[in-house]
Structures are given as structure tokens and as C-alpha cells.
Design a protein around this nucleic acid. Structure first.
Lengths: 210, 210
DNA sequence: GTCTATAGGCCGATAGAC
DNA sequence: GTCTATCGGCCTATAGAC
């Protein structure tokens, strides 16, 4: 909130910023239907009329929050190193970063709200997928293609290899966390999941040593 | 969400049946928050007072629907054959049945509503998991143990092998369908997903020939 | 732009007759 | 048990002053 180089995504209005911030927190915590415009106005410390001066309706505010959330994506390309020749080490690092990101409470909340509201807002699923999983998927496919070119990976279809690696990461811990079955997945559980995913993926796609 | 896992399914009252059926359809289609008690009463062709004579509150009705939905689980033990010695064939059959079930619109709706309301009803995720994925998981673990005993599968931890097979099935098609990104997954897509899952799983867990 | 105050409607839940 | 009719409250959205 200080003078950092923040995204001036919407516009310079501080009230608008307050509204979006508060709305994001409440929508992600409780879902669209359970949050009232009164509650958002109260949390943002503005009046309801001000709120409606910036957003024409509750739907429009929700759409604004979704756009804001989608633009903030920390999974960057530097997740994929090209200098390190160690295949196992690279895969471990990628898997660890990806799973940690997927298990963040914020990420899980976005996932839950998206699935909850795809009926009311059909566009929502697409926005989420393209800003999240799809972006990672494409970067991972590029990485796989690089490893194939190096001769250390054999994958007929890089998109399947990519989908399967992400699926292996989502197995167990993430699936249960998304259902709120285990609030804090321990580091040991995360490590074990990544290790198992990497092991299985390598058995399927590592090129035969020779 | 009061009351334990009651078993009063075949309640003789036809009105109660009408109510639960209508409520299930509406809750699964639109989510908890978007469905009013008026709408349920209208769809069930009873008065709102009758509705409240059978269920003390909207929450209680939702809980009743969840219990009803959870008790209707078609993934039976006969999914896992023991007479067929063909490992590949067995795995294909299991994967096909499981993925088809997961892709049914009803199954996807239950999954969406569950994820949507875990904040409001903390019990919900557990009920869903135990009646659905957990049941399949245990059956698959038993099947894996049998294959290990036969010497055709090598798995240090059957629970990981089981989680990973389910995750490989959920990869791609199911993940996108759960976000309503592709309304009708074609049979070809399903076949390809199963085939890829089986292939990867066997490379990781099939015992070395000889 | 921002506020206070309120309109107008729908919601969950109930009263009372039968 | 089932109905009609209704209550009190909270909801989204707006009017009007400044």
C-alpha cells in the first residue's frame, strides 16, 4: 500500500482501489452470493452510493475483481531454467514452485469461486484457465520441447506430457486441500507429492540412457 | 448442517420425495445461494409451509440433498475384475468407467457445488470425498495390492499409486470440463485420456518383465 | 465524487385455518 | 400435513443534498 511500483491497472482513484481490494478479499473468502454490497462498502470504508458510482452493479464489480485477480500472476518464465543440465533437479524445482503456488490459500480461493460461479458467469472458467493453468501449461510444453531437443526426454505429444505432470502434482494433497479437507498441508507432504510426481513422470518420459 | 449421516432414504412421503428431487436439481444447477425456497416449493409443486414442515431450514434441506446425492454411488466393486489376467485390459476398463463417471454432468455439478460451499458448510467436502473419490481410492488400492501379489505390479505405496492413477485420469479433459470450458468431451478425447493415463501409469508401476 | 437516507423487492421463516 | 397469507429483514440500487 506504500509508494511501491504498483500496477496502476484500473485508474488512480484511491477509493476505487479500496473498493476492489475489499471486494476481492470478501468475494474470495465467502463467494459471490454470500457477500452483500453493504458489506463491501463497509469493508472498503466508502458509502454504497460511491461504490455504485464506480461499478454499475454487483456483477460489474465482480467482473472487475476477476480481471484484477487474473492480471496478478506470479508464475513467471524464470521458473524454467535453461542453464542447469540436471533434468531431475529442474523438474523438482518446477514441481515445487508450481505446487506451492497452487496450494496458496489465495489460489485455492480463486479456484473455488471460479468453479462455483461458472453457471452464473460462463466466461469465468475461461479467464481463470487462460491466466493460470494454460499459461503454465504452455511454458512447460516449451520446456519439454527443449528437453526433447537435448535428447533427455521422449514425448510424442508435449501437451499430454504437460497435462500429466500438472495432474500428478494435483494428486492427493491439492485435491484434498481444494475440498478444505486438510487446512495446512505440511512441507513434508508437499515434498513427498512432488517427489512422487517427478519419479512417475520421469519413468514415463525420460529418454532411455545411452 | 446438523444431524449425522442419516439413512432415512426411503421415506414414504411422496411430497418429501418431490421436494428433495426438485431441490437437488436446482441446487446442482444453480448453487446454494442462487436458489430460493420459493423456487424449490414451486418446482416441487408444494407450498412453502409444506416444505418447512419437512425441513427446518434451507440449510437442513441442503444437507438432506447432500445425503441423498452421496448415497447414490454407482461405482461398484464389480468395476474391479479379478478373473481377467490381462493387466492392460483391466486398467483400461477401470479407467474408462471411472472417467466416464467423473465426466457425467451430475458428477461435475456435485463437485462444483461442493467446492463452492465448503466455506459455508465445512462438512461438505468430507462427505463428498468419502462417498466418492475415497471409495474408489480404497477399491483401487485393494486392486493394486492384488496385482502386486500376482507379481505384475511394483508399488511401494499403493495409496500413491492409486492417487496418481486417479490424477492422471483427471488430467486435461476432466479439469477443463470442471471449469465448463468444453461442454461435451467427445469419446475420442476420453479414450485418448484413458490411454495416456494407462500408458504412463504402467511405465511407472508395471513390474519388469521376466 | 461523495455522502445520508430510502425506495422497492425478494428472501427465509411463520401463523392460523382446515 | 397441507394450504393461503403475511411478517420482518436484508438485499440491490437510486434520489437528492453538498
Amino acid at each position: 500500500m506504500g509508494g511501491g511500483a504498483a500496477f496502476s491497472r484500473s485508474d488512480g482513484s484511491p477509493k476505487r482501489r479500496q473498493i476492489v481490494t475489499a471486494a476481492e478479499r470478501l468475494f474470495l473468502a465467502h463467494g459471490y452470493g454470500a457477500v452483500s454490497m453493504d458489506a463491501i462498502a463497509r469493508a472498503a470504508q466508502v458509502s454504497k452510493a460511491t461504490l455504485y458510482a464506480h461499478f454499475a452493479s454487483k456483477d460489474a464489480l465482480f467482473a472487475g475483481v476477476v480481471a484484477e485477480v487474473g492480471s496478478d500472476n506470479p508464475v513467471a518464465g524464470d521458473l524454467f531454467p535453461t542453464d542447469n543440465p540436471d533434468l531431475l533437479g529442474q523438474l523438482r524445482r518446477i514441481g515445487h514452485s508450481a505446487l506451492h503456488f497452487m496450494l496458496r490459500e489465495r489460489t485455492l480461493s480463486i479456484y473455488r469461486v471460479t468453479m462455483a460461479e461458472t453457471a452464473r458467469f460462463p466466461e469465468l472458467g475461461r479467464v481463470f484457465y487462460e491466466n493460470g493453468p494454460q499459461r503454465f501449461r504452455q511454458m512447460f510444453q516449451t520446456w519439454v520441447a527443449g528437453q526433447v531437443a537435448r535428447g533427455v526426454v521422449t514425448a510424442e505429444d508435449p501437451s499430454i506430457a504437460s497435462d500429466q505432470f500438472m495432474a500428478l502434482l494435483r494428486c492427493g494433497v491439492f485435491f484434498r486441500a481444494s475440498l478444505s479437507l486438510q487446512p495446512p498441508p505440511t512441507d513434508a507432504e508437499i515434498d513427498a507429492t512432488v517427489e512422487a510426481a517427478v519419479a512417475t513422470w520421469l519413468k514415463a518420459f525420460a529418454a532411455p540412457a545411452g
